[in-house]
Amino acid sequence: MKTFFNGLVLLALAALAAILLAQFHPSAARSDLWFEYLNIFTTIFLGIFIEAAPFLLLGTLASGLVEVFLNPAQLYRLAPRTAIGGALAGGLLGLAFPVCECGVVPLTRRLFRKGLPPAMGIAFLLASPVMNPIVIASTLAAFGWGPVFWLRLILSFAIAAAVGLIFSTQRNPARLFLPGTAPVIAGASGLTPLDPPAAAPTARLGAALRIAADEFFEMGKFLVAGAALAALMQTFLPQSALLALGSGPLVSALALMLLAVLLSICSTVDAFIALAFTGAFSTGSILAFLVFGPMVDIKSVLLYLQVFPRRVVAYLVLLPFLMTLLAAVFLNLFTAY
């Protein structure tokens, strides 16, 4: 990951050098094809960033408020006691906790430590990046009230609940977690709510804003990296190359799922990225991108590894992968969408 970032920053510096060169020697560089590419790249990159930044910002603000004002212990008292009830409730819990996939991991860990049932926690972990008000709003903004919008919600919920149920069959829940109860999650915000008498509402609000600013940077860097990769691909990969991938019912779904993992785009904005592929890909494959990406990508797997043993992380990747692929191929083969 570190070398990835180093490479990206080097690339950015090279781009900046090229810009400066072009500014000072306009006649020499402006006719250059590379300057043209740089301009296209910059326009697309800034377009994605400007479109996504408001959603990311709203997400981090909501997350800051949740962390400061909400007490997970109270929530636990309301948790269902059966595995099925837990899995279903966990799938919907995101509606109350508007966090995207970066924020959900530390929140889930905190809830686990407070005694949340595994089925509910796993379902929450996988579903909440989609089943939350901000992502629902951005998906709606991008796709409208169509099949993509509804199927994204239904599939995300169903797959998350199913994986949660599968994990609930583990007799000894302790084996699901790393032995260290307080594993370090780099850059993640903690979740201890302030004691009600200890802090005035304004102080809490101030703390929420600080957490939001921190989270904007922690998640913003993944957004910038994702936007840069997406813009690079769009600049150099002609539409016809994407169209070629978009043909087979299986290969096109696999291609977009791989893309979702590689781009690691925050779920609050991935709908806008997916929109760019609608011309070239079928609805089933677009859904594979929108359902699998929020559950599993480079950055969420890195975060999962801080909470779960490798074996469990492998299941957390494999089970959603197979279920999403199955659903996508089914949609590609048997529906007209």
Binding site: K2, F49, A53, L194, E218, G220
Partner: peptide, 27 residues
């Protein structure tokens, strides 16, 4: 007082700032 999160490492911080500033620089 309000939060007990771990800060990223110094190197991580540098990249974080650079990456988030990238849209600003390019723009």
């Amino acid at each position: 007082a309000g939060h007990d999160h771990e800060h990223p490492s110094p190197i991580g911080r540098r990249w974080t700032l650079l990456l988030v500033a990238l849209p600003l620089l390019l723009g």
